[in-house]
Design a protein around this nucleic acid. Structure first.
Lengths: 203, 203
DNA sequence: GTCCTTATGTTGACAGTGTCAAGATTGCTA
DNA sequence: TAGCAATCTTGACACTGTCAACATAAGGAC
């Protein structure tokens, strides 16, 4: 098994695909969506400018795959919070919301990519799968609170749309600084705030 | 006063600044955020590729000014709905929410620009002013419902954050197709849906 | 082990982009 | 009417995404 240094010097990278996704996330975080560059990702991975094309075809495709990992991690963030919480429906829903906000605050650029409205490729299978995974955590929590998992029901649709919209909207508004009274809050205070917001919802 | 055709042929445009903002919105709507091009805006306005720089300095600055007009129109959209509604606090809040969603659905790319998290220049005076104008409509409506306009109050903060987050989040989720059961709805059905969502909130 | 097929990276090129400097054109004011 | 300042054009530069042609290595068939 080659060491990391050997991998970097060898003609073949070893796992360039994963390295490029990592690089893309760093590029996105540091340079922002508009400053993002495919060649920059290649440089971060220590590879020629055209190498990414062999794994992703285009810059848009690389971003799609990055967004897919984002949805996976969003689901993880919610599930981890749920695992640390009481198993009753209400605490579970709260935990999902808190996990959603936590992920959003820690990955603002990634969240914007994931939910951008000219979102790259809703046709990508991997992205759709991971996204449904994340949404499933939320809808499942809402269903548990309602004691009803029939989402053809209009009342259920209202419940899930309300909860999700509130959490998602809050995540966006704090990330772009629109809610100024949040700025100075500690992480704990923000979590408490989210908790009370969800409490104000009817299910 | 020169006719439009004369303006186009003359060396000086007449009102290139406004024309460029219009062009930028078309460019953004048709090409999307990632396909947006400063030279494309110049072409749409029938002007040389470097002309925009004299009015906006950079591409980012043009987008800032476009976003500023967006906030102004968002405020207008809410206020128009309010003018058409009963003057009691609750209908006024509902109207603001409906107006918000209406604007969002009609201008998805613009909304994304306005609320993007690497949002261009929160330092721009015009943008901040227009944004505060739009936010003021919402906060004013919430204050009227609560009969209390002290937003240092934590309970008031919870109310405004809840309402705004829900409306804003819903706007984003439907724009990127996350809420699949909304897709087939008519405009009236969507409005009714928003109404019921707001109804589920406590103030 | 040797060959050769295939995956993986590199190099070089191309059109298109944002920005800058220098020059051309025009409206305005004195 | 002369000149000044605002406005727009031209040309250049480095940089970008993508493509085609080439180089290198990995891994199985024999």
């Amino acid at each position: 098994m080659p060491t990391k240094a050997e991998q970097q010097k060898s003609y073949h990278h070893g796992d360039l695909r994963a390295a490029l996704i990592d690089a893309a996330e760093k590029e996105l975080t540091e340079k922002g969506y508009s400053g993002f560059t495919l060649r920059g990702c290649a440089r971060r991975a220590g590879v020629s400018h055209a190498a990414p094309a062999h794994h992703f075809g285009s810059a848009a495709n690389l971003l799609i795959k990055l967004a897919a990992t984002g949805f996976g991690r969003l689901a993880q963030s919610m599930e981890q919070r749920q695992a640390e919480s009481a198993s009753e429906p209400i605490p579970q829903l709260m935990a999902a919301g808190i996990g959603y906000i936590e992920f959003a605050r820690q990955n603002p650029a990634l969240l914007q990519l994931m939910f951008g409205s000219d979102r790259p490729g809703s046709e990508d299978e991997e992205l759709v799968h991971h996204a449904q995974l994340a949404f499933g955590v939320l809808t499942g929590a809402v269903a548990a609170v309602r004691g009803d998992d029939d989402f053809e029901n209009r009342d259920a649709q209202l419940a899930i749309a309300s909860a999700w919209s509130m959490v998602h909207g809050f995540a966006n508004l704090i990330n772009n600084g629109s809610l100024n009274f949040i700025q100075g809050m500690s992480d704990e205070k923000v979590e408490q705030f989210v908790l009370e917001m969800i409490t104000r919802l009817r299910f």
